[in-house]
């Protein structure tokens, strides 16, 4: 298992489109991807779950991957979150 923390800096946080884009992005890995806001850990494969994390600008998020491509997955997903711009 590999995990890494990342600060969400885009304006809307993980609302609407950014959340949707993140879920689609996470689907390309074979590893099981989870996201945690410190209180709750959810599967990144579900838009419903990701939305219920209530991630806003400034939220600290932990990306957790478990599986064959876990190391690449975490690095790339963290970079993806850092580059959200909506």
């Amino acid at each position: 298992m590999v995990s890494k923390k990342v600060m969400v800096t885009n304006k809307t946080g993980l609302h609407a489109r950014p959340a949707s884009n993140l879920v689609t992005f996470c689907k390309k890995y074979n590893s099981k991807i989870s996201l945690s806001n410190g209180e709750k850990t959810v599967s990144a494969a579900s838009i419903i779950h990701v939305l219920t994390l209530g991630v806003k600008q400034g939220t600290q998020l932990e990306v957790i991957a478990e599986g064959e491509d876990e190391a690449t997955a975490v690095e790339e997903i963290v970079a993806f979150i850092e580059n959200l711009d909506e």
Partner: peptide
């Protein structure tokens, strides 16, 4: 429509 794009995500959601 952004509203229906969001609906599409929900309809395809694994949790559901």
């Amino acid at each position: 429509s952004d509203i229906f794009a969001a609906h599409l995500d929900v309809a395809e959601d694994t949790v559901l």
